[in-house]
Amino acid sequence: MADTEKKIKVAPVAKKVNHNPALKVVIYIVCIILTLLSIMPFVIMLVNATRSTNEIQAHAVSLIPSKYFFNNLKILTSKSFDPKVGFMNSMIVSVGCTVLSIYFSTLTAYGLVIYDWKLKNAAFRFIMAVMMIPAQLTTIGFYQMVYKIHMTNHLSMLIIPAIANSSMVFFMRQYMVGALPYELVQAARIDGGKEFYIYNKIALPIMKPAIATQAIFSFVTSWNNLFTPMILLTDQKKYTLPIMVSLLRGDIYRTEFGSIYLGLSMTALPLIIVYLILSKYIIAGVALGSVKG
């Protein structure tokens, strides 16, 4: 340690020197291996979407596409799998959840970070506690409630609860503590900004990198959510894509694996697109982050 410090003092030009090229090679090799591991399931999924059920049953994993894509598509659409309806419902739920949870979580975090109020710490502790309750059991109470008030088959029952997303509040708060200086809010007040105006015009833009990351997670989670929608949505017109895929798997005695993989691919595709769109903000976050001074 002492040695390196000395070295730095001796050679302060180190920053101009290129890093060890061998290390750079190692970095690229690691990244490429991780890339292969990460895309493996997608390749298998897409390839299997073109294979027949019997081919898949004989060899579950293959990298060679086959010729049963249209056959699988035919089976898929004949089995109460309606991509259009499923896509619309999934979209409504996921976009609704994401927008509500992002806006209100950031709002709550802002309330917790910027203002000083008596119950502030109690409120934050409560939100943390909520986050820690094992969800397995409480969901049953929720189902019971929704059935009792006869609100099954309302997509809103999946969307509105997203306002209270404790772990996202936690993230937003943690991020805001570091990224939103109080002086900025003060300055805006002096300029005559109203509180909601300051939140919408100053706080939200600064939070963009955090919002982009959380938006992706929230969107992915609600897009893939299966169990709760499955219990609360019993009308086929309200089914989301994962429910439809689950129905394909429903008959274990004669499962059409080819069309299941096709269904899975179709479910994952919009997700990947949304992700790629949002990921632009993550990558471009450097500039956004530096707004703050």
Partner: peptide, 18 residues
């Protein structure tokens, strides 16, 4: 018709609630 697959374990809880 309401069809809920058994493979993901949701059929019974949903039916019981209903």
């Amino acid at each position: 018709s309401t069809i809920i697959a058994t493979t993901d374990g949701a059929y019974q809880p949903a039916l019981d609630q209903a």
